[in-house]
Amino acid sequence: MTAIAIVFLIVSIVLVWGGLVVSAVMLRRQSEVDRYPPGGVDDHREDVGIIEHDT
């Protein structure tokens, strides 16, 4: 492998694994949503039964 290939390999590894670590840390810090967008809090979808079609 050439030097430039090794540099790009190291940069890509740091980018991918660094993103994974940062996302895990952010999820650990703030795992729950503080506020939802309008209309997203309770839309009663669990209250509606399964749709049945005549086939």
Rank of each mutant, 00 (worst) to 15 (best):
M1S: 05
M1T: 03
M1R: 01
M1N: 02
M1E: 01
M1L: 08
M1G: 05
M1Y: 02
T2N: 00
T2E: 00
A3G: 02
A3K: 00
I4S: 05
I4M: 03
I4W: 04
I4K: 05
A5V: 01
I6N: 00
I6V: 07
I6Q: 00
V7F: 04
V7N: 01
V7K: 01
V7P: 00
L9K: 00
I10D: 01
I10S: 01
I10T: 05
I10F: 03
I10C: 00
I10E: 03
V11C: 01
V11N: 00
S12D: 04
S12V: 05
I13H: 08
V14S: 09
V14D: 09
L15W: 09
L15K: 06
L15M: 12
V16N: 05
V16P: 03
W17D: 04
W17F: 12
W17G: 03
W17I: 14
G18S: 01
G19H: 03
G19Y: 05
L20Q: 03
V21R: 12
V21H: 11
V21I: 14
V21L: 14
V22D: 03
V22W: 05
V22R: 03
S23M: 07
S23C: 06
S23A: 10
S23G: 05
S23L: 06
A24E: 06
A24K: 08
A24N: 07
V25W: 09
V25S: 09
M26E: 10
M26A: 06
L27E: 13
L27G: 14
L27Y: 15
L27H: 15
L27S: 13
R28W: 15
R28Q: 14
R28S: 14
R28K: 15
R28P: 06
R29W: 08
R29Q: 12
Q30P: 02
Q30K: 13
Q30M: 10
Q30R: 13
S31P: 12
E32G: 08
E32F: 13
V33Y: 07
V33L: 11
D34F: 10
D34N: 09
D34V: 04
D34A: 11
D34W: 11
R35P: 05
P38D: 05
P38G: 04
G39A: 06
G40P: 02
G40Y: 06
G40E: 09
G40V: 01
G40N: 06
V41N: 10
V41S: 11
D42W: 05
D42Q: 11
D43M: 14
D43N: 13
D43K: 14
H44E: 11
H44N: 09
H44K: 09
E46M: 11
D47T: 13
D47L: 15
D47M: 12
D47G: 05
V48L: 14
V48R: 15
G49S: 05
G49V: 04
G49M: 04
I50T: 14
I50N: 10
I51C: 13
I51Y: 15
I51D: 15
I51F: 15
E52C: 09
E52W: 15
D54I: 12
D54C: 08
D54R: 08
T55W: 11
T55M: 12
T55L: 11
